[in-house]
Every structure is written in structure tokens, then in C-alpha cells.
Design a protein around this nucleic acid. Structure first.
Lengths: 134, 134
DNA sequence: TTACAACTTAGAGTTAACTCTAAGTCAAAT
DNA sequence: ATTTGACTTAGAGTTAACTCTAAGTTGTAA
């Protein structure tokens, strides 16, 4: 069982951000200790890491919320029981399919600019070494 | 020679955004027609597209400005004459190298989440088709 | 048991990156 | 020649996503 700062540490998100995500409904209400303090399980952390990777690949918080909501219990990095997931399945398939296409395009774009960047670097380095005289 | 809305069209950035980029010094002062209206060449557009791809892969406008500035004439998608580029070469190599590493990591991350997403989609689809009964 | 650090909340403030408004000028078509 | 629509500027407004503040509570180590 982990505190909010443990999770912050593990996820690279600040405690502020984690509370904010909960406030806007992107994360489900955390479990609480006696005194009211949040605690998190491994599963909670895995879910947070999954959301973080969606975010890193350009999904907006709003779009992520749509993925998470619909009254559905959030899943443990994908193995909730089928009957828990079923009501929101079509919606989820739709969102993930769209995002998948976006990510595939992103990957192509990324590969292109990586090679453009390598070319530029090679050019700059050749000038620096003096291979190209002025 | 292209107008600002031509460039907007070609680059996917709005005229507002193009003027804004110029205002903050991310783009060099545009050439103007008689009446003061901006016009752009193919080279200008290529440079704008290069900046756009840097942005798409997560470089901040501030970081891009650093790349562009240093009093240097901006380059035509990489072939300014060496003597124009030389003063800012070390800085540019530094920025691009850092960004390259970031992009390589991003690519790995992207590949990982693409495959995770595919798995999830396969799982959802199998529930939808009824292969997994409740 | 007393510090002291980390937690809690609601709500305010910040930052990056646009995005628009207002008031006016310019250009193309009728 | 006049209308229509795109252009110009400075500066204000917006949005997403945090990030912090204040005031108070809880947990832990000496």
C-alpha cells in the first residue's frame, strides 16, 4: 500500500497532479486510511502508468476521462471481469481504435523526423570538424 | 509566393498562430508586399514544416526559439552556407542531440503502448463477439 | 509529547500556446 | 466605384493542465 508521494515518485506525476486527476474524475476516488489519507495499490499504480502512457502519446485528459467513465469500474491494466466492462465496450473500442491510428501515424512521423534530425546533425558535425570549408 | 492563409493551409497552423510565432521570434520577420502584407516562399514553408514536426514530437516553442535564435539567419531546411551557421553550431548540435535522444525514447514508448493497445483491443473484441462468456 | 513532515480541502494563481477582438487597410470581383 | 473578404496591429481573452496557497489534520521519529 502506497502513499500519494510514493505514487508520485513511481509515476513521475506530482501529488498535486494526482489529486487533480481525481478531482476531474480521471482517476476513481482513492481508498482512504482511518485519518482520511489516500492510499494506493499496485493495480492503482499500473492504471495510473497506463494513463500516463496514453498522455505521453498525445491523448488529452478529456479523452482519457471518456475512456475511464461510463460508470464503469476502472480496470486493472486490462483484466476486469467481462461483465464489468461490457456496457462500455463499444465506446472503448472506438476510442482506442482512433487513438491507435493516431499513434501509428505518430510513429511514422517520428521515424521521419528522427532521420531528418540525424542528417542535420551529420551536416553540423561535418562543418564543425571543418570538412566543409567556407 | 504565398499569403499567410496559403501557408496556414499548407502547414496546418492558423494565420493567428503564424503571426504569433513571428511575434515571439520563433519565425523571422516575414517579407512584406507593398501594402505591408506578409508573403512566404517555398523555403519559408519548408522551415515552418520543420518547426511543426519538431513541435509534434514534443519540443516546446521556447526550445525551438533557442534553436532558431542567436542572430543567425534561419536555414532553408538545412542548407545555409556554412559561414552563416557556424556561430551557433555547437548550440544547435547540443539541442538537436538532446532532442534526438528524447525522440528515440519516445519511439520506444510509442511502440510499447501501440502493442499494449492492440492487446486491449483484441481483448475487448473477443468479449464483444462473445468468445468470453460471463 | 512534542516537533515536524506529509497529508487533507477548496479554491486561487500560473504557464504555454494559442485565439480572438477591434479598428483599420488592402485587394479582387462585380 | 463599391462591396466583400483577407489582410494588418496591439493587446485582451481563452483553454488545458497543472501548481500552489492557506488553514487545518495526521503520522512518525526523537
Amino acid at each position: 500500500m502506497f502513499t500519494i508521494s510514493d505514487v508520485a515518485q513511481k509515476s513521475g506525476l506530482s501529488p498535486y497532479t494526482l489529486r487533480y486527476y481525481e478531482k476531474i474524475g480521471l482517476l476513481p476516488a482513492s481508498k482512504r486510511k482511518e485519518g482520511g489519507q489516500r492510499y494506493y495499490t499496485e493495480n492503482d499504480i499500473n492504471f495510473i502508468l497506463f494513463l500516463k502512457s496514453l498522455k505521453q502519446t498525445g491523448m488529452s485528459l478529456e479523452n482519457m476521462s471518456e475512456f475511464v467513465k461510463d460508470g464503469c469500474i476502472y480496470e486493472q491494466l486490462h483484466f476486469n471481469s467481462p461483465e464489468e466492462i461490457k456496457p462500455s465496450i463499444t465506446k472503448r473500442i472506438e476510442i482506442l481504435s482512433k487513438h491507435l491510428i493516431k499513434m501509428e501515424m505518430q510513429k511514422k512521423e517520428l521515424e521521419l523526423i528522427i532521420s531528418t534530425t540525424k542528417e542535420k546533425l551529420a551536416y553540423y558535425n561535418s562543418i564543425k570538424k571543418g570538412d566543409i570549408k567556407t
